[in-house]
Nucleic acid binder design. Structure first.
Lengths: 210, 210
DNA sequence: TAGAAAATACCTCAATAAAGGGGATAATTT
DNA sequence: AAATTATCCCCTTTATTGAGGTATTTTCTA
């Protein structure tokens, strides 16, 4: 039985078998209906405003425009639609680019059917469904390196430098002398074996010291 | 029945009722056992190395040392233990500080018992269990503002500035003239209504333009 | 409680970067 | 065709940076 309150779902996926599989799964789940299915982003961008789905399942590797490239355009076409990435790719770069471009969830393709349905519901409900390993990667991206060579004060000062503040301003805000800040920076550079602000920030970020 | 392969769980929670409730739940679930329960972090830090749990459920609001302060010390005491935050607090600041300090999951206290058990298993398995709203906050933290006033090039240059690079270096790396970079910066400052690097970075970060 | 580590402050120096102002003209996009 | 974006050029003045030192006080921690 179909209701007006059914959650409408659209799919962008180039593999016809997979696409129809998902459509079959969702179309036959009570409370859900299919608003449209598209084999590529170009096609989707033409039709999606009319179909206006509640949730869009988006593949990232597609012929033509990639799912990630299409994200901002899709967001513009259907701002209310919740976009859920559904892909085999698990590279950090892709995940963070997808989330940065407006994806509200990220599932890998080994996700069992019932979890996909749950995720659709969750994203509608203000959640951020992620596969377990994706969630761990996302959490890891926050984690500081607990064996940093920098002292607490040095870390604090390098963080301030990374916000673009001048040494003078940092000194003022930390209520210490400019010369003290300069000493700390000197020590930071020695420890990180760098000779410039940019290199220090780069080294510290790569190693999660800041 | 208890096995050597049971997942051992410890709990730091000041409310005795809640603490014993969790202990009862976990102790009576097949495949799980309680390694220890503590009412505060000071107490936990004394005993946890001996109890050596696989997973630690950690409250953030505690008398004495807070859970977040204790995180690095706990990590040091039991580096192999997976730490799962279990709290009523949902402030962004707390969440990001907890994850930055080594928490591998974040659950709110309305999480039903079966989900807590699942989360314990998940964190052991390399996942990053989070309550739905926490996951959304975490995902949102990655999302760029799609109505930035900055052009693509301006955004790119401001990102480079935020890495601490000099204008000259940015010009070299983008294969454009120093004067071009200066023009872009001029326009960025105008658009963001700021008069310095630090303020531009701050404004852009706050508004998720970069 | 002694020694180590961290944080603090001071000095000099040359080189570079930043910020603000004024322009102009290609190259894209819409 | 108009608007936006990207590019390049000139000027000035002040502020910042990075590198070389030394030295004191405070705070851990073994």
């Amino acid at each position: 039985m179909r209701h007006d309150t059914d959650i409408s779902v659209a799919i962008i996926e180039d593999d016809a078998t997979i696409r129809e599989g998902y459509a079959y799964l969702i179309g036959n789940t009570s409370g859900y209906k299919i608003a449209g299915t598209y084999a590529n982003c170009e096609d989707a961008l033409k039709k999606i405003a009319h179909d206006d789905p509640d949730v869009l399942l988006l593949d990232v590797e597609l012929p033509g425009m990639s799912g990630i490239e299409a994200l901002p355009k899709l967001k513009k076409a259907v701002p209310e639609t919740h976009i859920l990435i559904l892909t085999v790719y698990e590279e950090e770069m892709l995940i963070f680019r997808a989330l940065g471009n407006g994806a509200e969830g990220y599932l890998t393709k080994n996700t069992p059917p019932d979890k996909i349905i749950t995720a659709i519901h969750e994203v509608m409900d203000g959640g951020g469904p992620m596969s377990a390993n994706i969630a761990r990667m996302v959490i890891s991206s926050f984690k500081r390196n607990d064996s940093s060579p920098l002292t607490r004060r040095e870390t604090e000062i390098l963080e301030q430098i990374a916000t673009g503040k001048s040494r003078k301003r940092i000194a003022d805000e930390l209520f210490i002398d400019l010369e003290t800040v300069k000493s700390h920076i000197k020590n930071i550079y020695h420890k990180l074996d760098v000779h410039s602000k940019a290199d220090a920030i780069k080294a510290a970020r790569e190693n999660k010291f800041i």
